[in-house]
């Protein structure tokens, strides 16, 4: 009996071990915050180019993924970080886990989309956008907003939802872009004025757009592509990109120092900068750092500009990363309810 139990236990342990350390050559693990449906499309593209490499993907929201990576820090489980917010990436606790790597084709990427020390590079990104529910707007006789400045109109009182800057990356992106474009003093004053119209601060960045879609509120401050998606779903949403310029965030990729399969991980990172990949970015992302990515007709119809560069506000990422703690503390003190 004991012998039997012991051998079973042994077998189970071995089975578990091979399961745990199953990442052999030809297999890599990527941690990402890209959207589920996009991941599927990108991986189909990668499989065509490199059929021998299997990519296991764990998808979590930006903040949850940061928590997970930091908690796993003593023993990282992934080979690459794929499509993850740059403001999170520049956290020194994360950066020290990465290894510098220059993927093939990195020279075509503009300097603002890559790290000077080659620890990360961006492929895609997202920027601030307002989701406006046209049905609710009409029902309440409200004007269509076109800028951040319009949103302080008292007519919108109780009709706007905005992400919570402390818990949502999109929320922080919106706040920091306003502070950078208006200067700190005027920026904070604007946020306090805007606060009078805000019905709720939402803990996730895409939810405000969803709440506007189902008509819970008239205007959801979010990122542009969440609006594009809801429009394509068929909701009565109009996407508004603030005329002052939209703050943006890039989604970056990096190689882990602890990668168990560096050779294949590098091939994956290389593929992210190929023309094949760029074509997919055109179909699935609102902005891309890789030349050759062109938005599709559907996306343009949903309200995305053909040349994204014209609507972006030029962010100072170093400053926005460096000041994050201070700005969030101030936001919590003077704005959060």
């Amino acid at each position: 009996m004991t012998k039997w139990t012991r051998s079973t236990k042994c077998a189970a342990m071995i089975a578990l071990a091979s399961f745990c350390y199953g990442a052999q050559a030809g297999e890599i693990t990527a941690y990402t915050s890209l959207e589920e449906d996009d991941i599927r499309v990108y991986l189909q593209g990668f499989a065509k180019a490199k059929p021998a490499i299997k990519v296991n993907v764990l998808r979590l929201s930006t903040g949850d993924l940061a928590a997970r990576m930091l908690a796993e820090k003593s023993n990282p489980r992934h080979d690459v970080i794929w499509g993850w917010a740059v403001t999170q990436m520049v956290d020194p606790r994360i950066l020290e886990m990465t290894e510098a790597y220059k993927p093939a084709g990195i020279d075509q990427v503009k300097p603002e989309f890559k790290d000077a020390q080659n620890r990360w590079f961006a492929t895609t990104g997202y920027f601030a956008g307002f989701c406006v529910n046209t049905e609710i707007l009409k029902k309440n006789n409200l004007p269509m907003p076109s800028s951040w400045a319009d949103l302080t109109n008292p007519a919108y009182k109780g009709q706007i939802v905005m992400p919570n800057a402390a818990s949502s990356g999109t929320g922080y992106l919106q706040v920091v872009s306003i502070l950078q474009m208006k200067g700190e003093e005027k920026g904070w004053q604007y946020l306090k004025d805007l606060d009078k119209n805000i019905a709720q601060y939402i803990k996730s960045g895409s939810r405000p757009c969803k709440m506007a879609s189902t008509g819970e509120y008239a205007i959801g401050l979010s990122f542009a592509f969440s609006g594009v998606k809801q429009i394509m779903e068929g909701y009565p949403i109009k996407l508004v990109i603030p005329s002052e310029g939209a703050g943006y965030e890039t989604e970056v990729n990096a190689l882990m120092k602890t990668a168990k399969n560096k050779a294949d991980a590098k091939q994956f990172l290389d593929w992210l900068l190929t023309l094949d990949a760029a074509k997919l970015y055109g179909e699935r992302a609102e902005m891309s750092s890789v030349p050759g990515a062109k938005p599709t007709a559907d996306i343009l119809k949903a309200g995305l500009p053909a040349d994204v560069a014209t609507v972006l506000y030029k962010m100072d990422f170093d400053a926005s990363a460096k000041n994050k703690d201070r700005i969030i503390a101030e936001w919590k003190k003077s704005i959060e309810r």
Partner: peptide, 21 residues
């Protein structure tokens, strides 16, 4: 909950939003 914060959502704010374990 809207803007009605409770302890459990505060944990989320700290951990997921700010990586402040």
């Amino acid at each position: 909950g809207g803007d009605f914060s409770v302890l459990a959502t505060e944990i989320y704010n700290q951990v997921s939003g700010q990586s402040n374990f």
